[in-house]
C-alpha cells in the first residue's frame, strides 16, 4: 500500500469543444491519504466533476502525473483503466444509475461479474454488502420498488462489493430529501470508519461538505482552498 491513495501532480485537462479549447483543469496537485474523508467543492464549471473523473480513472489527464494506489495511470489502455475502476474505485452517482430491470442483488453483483468472480461467492458477498447498508430484507426488490434513499443504498452496496480503496460519490444526496441525504452521508461515514475506505464526495452543498474532514475548493480549474 502506497502512502497516498490519490496522488495528483500538476494535472491539466483540456477539452476540444469544436473550435474552442476548454481548460477544465489548469494544474492541480492533490494528495489524499488512505482513510481520509474529503469533499471537493466549487461552483459549476469549476472543474470538480472533471477532477473526480480523473481521480476515478474514468478519464485521463491531458498533462501531469496521476497515480491511484501508487499505480500511475498515464500509459494504461482503456481496458486496463476499466480493470482499475473495477477493483480500486467504487462510484456513487447523483442519479443512482441502477439497472432498472435487475434486482437489488443483481445490481450489487454487477462489478463482481466483470471481475469474473465465481457465482456462489458473488451472491453471498452481494448479500452481505446489502446487509451492511441496511437493505438485507430488500435484496429481491427492483429499483422501481425502492425509495430514493434505498436506491442510493443499493448503489453504495454496489460500490463496496469489490472492496475498493476509494469511494467516489458525485453529489450523492443531490436527488434526495434532506433526511434521506443525512442518512446516506451517515452511512458513508460509518463505512469509512468501519472499513477504512477513502471517501471523496463531490458536492456544491456546504452542509454536506461540513460533514467531511477536509474540503478542497476549486475555482476555474485551480485549487482555491484546501483545508
Amino acid at each position: 500500500m502506497s502512502k497516498w491513495v490519490v496522488d495528483a501532480e500538476n494535472i491539466t485537462k483540456v477539452y476540444q469543444m469544436g473550435e474552442v479549447e476548454v481548460h477544465a483543469l489548469r494544474g492541480i496537485s492533490v494528495k489524499i491519504a488512505p482513510g481520509e474523508v474529503v469533499a471537493i467543492m466549487g461552483p459549476s464549471g469549476s472543474g470538480k466533476s472533471t477532477l473526480m473523473n480523473i481521480m476515478g480513472c474514468l478519464d485521463r489527464p491531458t498533462s501531469g502525473e496521476y497515480s491511484l494506489n501508487g499505480e500511475s495511470v498515464a500509459n494504461l489502455s482503456d481496458d486496463q483503466l476499466a480493470e482499475i475502476r473495477n477493483r480500486g474505485v467504487g462510484f456513487v452517482f447523483q442519479s443512482f444509475n441502477l439497472l432498472p430491470r435487475a434486482t437489488a442483488l443483481a445490481n450489487v453483483e454487477l462489478p463482481m461479474r466483470y471481475a469474473e468472480l465465481n457465482g456462489r461467492n458473488r451472491k453471498e458477498v452481494s448479500r452481505q454488502a446489502l446487509e451492511a447498508v441496511g437493505l438485507g430484507d430488500r435484496i429481491r426488490h427492483r429499483p422501481n420498488e425502492l425509495s430514493g434513499g434505498e436506491m442510493q443504498r443499493v448503489a453504495i452496496a454496489r460500490a463496496l462489493v469489490n472492496d475498493p480503496a476509494i469511494i467516489m460519490a458525485d453529489e450523492p444526496t443531490g436527488n434526495l430529501d434532506s433526511k434521506a441525504g443525512d442518512e446516506i452521508m451517515k452511512l458513508l461515514r460509518t463505512l469509512n470508519e468501519e472499513r477504512g475506505t477513502t471517501l471523496i464526495v463531490v458536492t456544491h452543498d456546504p452542509e454536506i461538505a461540513s460533514l467531511t474532514d477536509r474540503i478542497i475548493s476549486l475555482r476555474d480549474g485551480r485549487i482555491k482552498e484546501d483545508n
Binding site: D79, A82, R85, R87, L99, L110, Y114, A115
Partner: peptide, 16 residues
C-alpha cells in the same frame, strides 16, 4: 447509453 456508461464505470471492458 447510460447503462453502458455505468457498466463501463464499474469495470466492463470493451469486450464485455
Amino acid at each position: 447509453t447510460k447503462e453502458i456508461g455505468l457498466r463501463k464505470a464499474v469495470g466492463a471492458k470493451k469486450r464485455d
